[in-house]
């Protein structure tokens, strides 16, 4: 009797331990992401005196003094406006070039297609610091230095691989038969794209655009190297917050993180699709 029943609890124990490990792992990963964010927001939304105090409160006191001071800080609004301009331009450039490339990858067979796909990703393997100096020299020669367009071009280069790959998987998810049906029903290739493919791909394209926006919004290195007067928010914070009091740093950090977080959350479904994680 006991011989028969003995293995059962053991297996249960193994299962329980496995589940515990699994949950602990998940908990650890979640904390890894959430603790810094929590830390940032608690400090940003607390009174300056609380920032340096210990222990921390779990919930901020919603004292707006730090944020108010940050907002009125000389040059912040201008840098914010620059960030928005660069990010919007990056969005337009990367989708304008990335979506057609993604469409071509999904619909046409051309020589070197696989190589092109690898090449698109390879651009991300190229370290930006290596590129920054020659780029800065070239920008100064062509007059692109310290301009919104110049920086947007660099950011578009960073965002393009994602734009190409997201739109590629997006267009691949739309059956060719739908386009073919449209052709037999009187559409030119372009009309079929506009009337059938685009409406179906639009949410995903918007998501990919938002992602490009966030990449530009968060980018600090190129922004710091290539601009002087027309600094974006990241470059501006890097420059001026080094010498600022702690509450101000937290307020600046929160102001940077919040839009990126909201946008990424809004388009998470499409980013999962790009990385091949089955969603739903």
């Amino acid at each position: 009797m006991s011989d028969v029943t003995r293995p059962a609890p053991r297996q249960e124990d193994v299962g329980r331990a496995g589940r515990f490990l699994f949950r602990a792992g998940i908990g650890l990963l979640v904390l890894w992401v959430l603790v810094p964010i929590w830390f940032l927001f608690v400090n940003a939304l607390s009174a300056p005196s609380e920032v340096t105090s210990f222990p921390k409160r779990l919930w901020p006191s919603f004292d707006m003094a730090s944020l108010q001071f940050f907002w009125n800080f000389q040059g912040v609004t201008r840098a914010l406006w620059n960030s928005v301009k660069v990010a919007v331009l990056t969005m337009i450039l990367s989708i304008g070039m990335g979506a057609p490339a993604g469409y071509a990858l999904s619909r046409f067979d051309f020589p070197g297609k696989e190589f092109f796909r690898v090449l698109v990703i390879m651009t991300r393997a190229f370290p930006l610091p290596l590129l920054a100096l020659p780029l800065a020299v070239m920008f100064i020669r062509t007059g692109l230095d310290d301009t919104v367009l110049g920086l947007a071009l660099v950011h578009a280069m960073l965002a393009l691989p994602f734009a190409v790959l997201i739109t590629y998987s997006l267009f691949s998810g739309i059956p060719v038969e739908l386009e073919e049906a449209a052709w037999t029903l009187g559409c030119t290739r372009f009309q079929a794209f506009v009337k059938v493919v685009l409406p179906l791909a639009l949410p995903g394209i918007a998501a990919s655009a938002v992602f490009a926006f966030v990449i530009s919004w968060n980018e600090v290195f190129a922004a710091a190297v290539l601009t002087i007067e027309n600094r974006t928010l990241t470059a501006f914070l890097l420059q001026s917050l080094n010498v600022s009091p702690l509450p101000l740093k937290f307020a600046g950090g929160a102001a940077l993180v919040l839009p990126a977080l909201i946008f990424i959350f809004a388009v998470r479904k499409y980013l999962f699709a790009m990385w091949g994680i089955a969603n739903r």
Binding site: P175, E177, L178, E180, A181, A182, W183, T184, L185, G186, C187, T188, V196, P199, L200
Partner: peptide, 20 residues
């Protein structure tokens, strides 16, 4: 000629009904 100028209509195996 492209399909639209041939005076044909086609029914596809997987229907190809426009989902939007």
């Amino acid at each position: 000629l492209p399909p639209r100028e041939r005076g044909i209509a086609m029914v596809f195996q997987n229907y190809a009904v426009f989902p939007h």
